[in-house]
Design a protein around this nucleic acid. Structure first.
Lengths: 223, 223
DNA sequence: TTTTATTGATTGAGCATTCAATAAAAAATA
DNA sequence: TATTTTTTATTGAATGCTCAATCAATAAAA
């Protein structure tokens, strides 16, 4: 009983079903037929719209990225000042929509897939780099205030940004391990706490921070 | 051309090959035949020794846990005092043997499998709980020194422990994403830095730290 | 009657698992 | 020592199942 204009709805349902299937059956055992059943359609239709299983998985990952980016954008736009924008990142990461067992499972699966699939790797890397770049900028602005670019302290800001991002990722991983409801609030507090201490430390250090120039790379995830 | 007493060597080779295959082919595409080939034996032999593919994967995860535990134990035993024991945990996590792309991939795969396999979940959880428990103890000892149990500050120590563990996990995740050689040294510095600031903060706060008693759970990964 | 939506059967490949056969080493026996 | 028997190690072919992908058929809407 086909109605017209179903494509959009089907695509959305199939993507949601993919996330669900990955969480409940595991990434390897999530079959096209299973995903389609969860979306209330036949396996044939899933492949009709997406072309292949791989394409469906890629589309699902793209959707996760878009969802998170939207959440982030919305919160950043209402935030006043760099400190609030850092909190926006944290808040978005642990928002009810994102910090869900199903979503976390799917993210994990895609991190794993990125090990072997170059396209997945590229997408994740672009996102991660943008996030680090944003956070670095906010940290830097937070410490130097209205002062023009010091050029120094940029490294400290970058380290703070990487620490913040790593902390968020780590808390997501722990979420994947937690049986019951692992609290978003305490996760947020933990990261906010980290941010506070980083800012304090940077402010105390002032511009006399040329003491860790032993290694040139300095960053964890640079390329 | 069978030699006698091969079982041990074969088992070890097959487990190493499993890690390698997961990294290079992906968790889903790592077939028994492929793993066996990397270990230089036939697929039949792999199943002869391990019984099933699932059992081989479980054995591999067990081995990863044992390896990390050994490294940890060795470093803890030569460490003097709580602060050095915390560094031992950090050092072990980023030791050349552990902080390897292949090993990280395998860990990721097992975190994912833990979502659907209760036994895997149990093993990971036990390990994680022990780690948090150890770190909490060390942080607490570090702040209170020889002072008898204050009962207070335990929560702060636990939060510091969870933050440290999350930070380590997050840096592992970033490693999974990094193309080139992501530096262990800078990762270590990042975590050590975090530890230092946590200790400082706890010392400054002293025993007047009854200000965050709003939520009773407080922990991220408790069960 | 053309387009859009949808299904269910079919196909063909890939894979875990089984098993009978083989061959070297070790043990037992002559 | 020489020969047979048992044990251990190992393979490669055969089996049967699952699953992604294809496709012809169908049915509602335009």
């Amino acid at each position: 009983m086909p109605k017209i204009g179903m494509e959009g709805a089907r695509r959305r349902a199939l993507i949601a079903a993919t996330v669900e299937a990955i969480h409940e059956r595991g990434f390897c055992d999530a079959t096209v037929a299973d995903i389609a059943r969860r979306a209330g359609v036949s396996g044939g239709l899933a492949l009709h719209y997406f072309g292949s299983k791989k394409a469906l998985l890629t589309a699902t990952m793209g959707h996760l990225l878009i969802d998170l980016s939207k959440e982030l954008k919305a919160r950043r736009e209402t935030a006043l000042g760099p400190r609030a924008r850092i909190s926006a990142v944290i808040g978005a990461s642990f928002s009810p929509d994102q910090f869900q067992a199903q979503v976390v499972s799917a993210w994990l699966a895609f991190y794993l897939q990125a090990q072997t699939d170059p396209e997945t790797q590229r997408l994740l890397r672009v996102y991660h780099r943008r996030l680090i770049s944003n956070l670095t900028h906010e940290f830097h602005a937070l410490v130097t205030g209205g002062t023009p670019q010091t050029g120094r302290g940029r490294r400290a800001a970058r380290r703070a940004a990487e620490g913040t991002a790593a902390l968020i990722d780590g808390l997501w991983l722990q979420r994947a391990l937690a049986r019951g409801v692992s609290d978003a609030r305490s996760a947020i507090r933990l990261v906010e706490d980290y941010v506070e201490r980083q800012v304090e430390a940077a402010r105390c250090a002032g511009d006399a921070d040329a003491d860790d120039a032993d290694t040139d790379s300095g960053t964890v995830s640079d390329m």
